[in-house]
């Protein structure tokens, strides 16, 4: 039972990181109907920026985190401007959007590799240890990652549901054309959405880097977030969080009780099984293209 609780707690913390990433995918998908394949590059980029801010410039963690977030916002927004905007404006097929996003991803990840080298780096923060809750010992960093992740998601929720720009984004996600006819500025919406993905990817990158390591291809973990957002139901933010927590907890249990080598295998099997029984994800709607 203790082992079980231990795994669940650890699963929640990794699920929280997946949630950040999955919500990033879902947000872009809900408005633009394509999977932002460059997202994992943003994540690695954010992690590297924080890493160098601390290890080369000896900045305190919080300052480094903020710098990393700002740079990731810049990266995400400029990727949107350079690689997606004109495709979006001329309503290019989704295949083209995906290829362009994949291209941006390849270029950014391999630039990181070229500049910083491919080796694994330990994230330069001190180990803040564990504390025990009854029989269960809990990593303080895991708790912090969980709290901050959910804090960020909570802020995002407030932004989307309690502010005017948030309303604009929600309107755009229902029907971007009508929204723009009603006077919502599409470019502003794009800016905000990609700025938000910058924040999400950077925070996720930092915590993932602390939990494991910092390296150029670390973003491959975003495939878990994609799986989570599909399991939940593509394009819906709450579904992305549900899918992420489910995946985070289940795969940690698999790692704990079976073998950690099968952790990644499990998440893939999970995707296949969910899609077999729930073709549109657990909470997803079916086809939504109007004729």
């Amino acid at each position: 039972m203790d082992l079980f609780l231990q795994q669940v707690v650890s699963g929640i913390s990794i699920g929280a990181i997946y949630s950040l990433l999955a919500v990033g995918y879902a947000l872009v998908y809900s408005v633009y109907n394509f999977t932002n394949w460059a997202f994992d590059a943003f994540m690695a980029f954010g992690a590297f920026m924080a890493f160098y801010a601390i290890s080369s410039f000896f900045l305190p963690f919080w300052v480094a985190a903020i710098i990393s977030i700002l740079l990731a916002i810049g990266m995400a927004v400029s990727t949107e401007k350079l690689a997606y905007r004109s495709l979006r404006l001329r309503k290019a097929p989704r295949l083209f959007m995906m290829i362009s996003a994949m291209g941006a991803n390849l270029a950014i990840v391999n630039l990181l590799n070229l500049f910083f080298g491919g080796q694994f780096r330990r994230f330069p923060v001190e180990n803040i240890g564990t504390f025990s809750m009854g029989q269960v010992s809990v990593g303080r960093m895991d708790v912090l990652a969980g709290i901050i992740s959910f804090g960020v998601l909570g802020l995002l929720w407030v932004f989307l549901y309690r502010t005017k720009p948030g309303l604009g984004i929600r309107a755009s996600s229902i029907d971007i054309l009508t929204a723009s006819l009603m006077g919502i500025n599409n470019d502003a919406v794009a800016f905000i959405i990609f700025a938000v993905t910058g924040v999400l990817s950077s925070v996720a990158g930092i915590f993932y880097g602390i939990k494991y390591a910092v390296y150029p291809t670390m973003g491959i973990v975003t495939i878990k977030a994609m799986i989570a957002s599909i399991v939940g139901g593509l394009g819906s933010l709450p579904a992305a969080v549900v899918g992420s927590m489910l995946l985070g907890i289940l795969e940690t249990l698999v790692a704990g009780y079976i073998s950690s080598t099968y952790r990644d295998l499990f998440s893939f099997l999970f995707l296949v099984i969910i899609l077999l029984f729930f073709p549109n994800g657990l909470m997803g709607k079916s086809s939504d293209e109007k004729l």
Binding site: Y29, F34, T35, W37, R94, L95, M98, I220, I223, M226, I227, I230, L234, D264, L265, S267, F268, L269, L271, V272, L275, L276, P279, N280, S287, E289
Partner: peptide, 20 residues
């Protein structure tokens, strides 16, 4: 392919399968 109109599912599934 059973979930239609979602080319994204397939792209992610191919990546997942090859990594698996």
């Amino acid at each position: 392919f059973r979930s239609q109109l979602r080319g994204d599912y397939f792209a992610i599934a191919t990546l997942g399968l090859s990594e698996a």
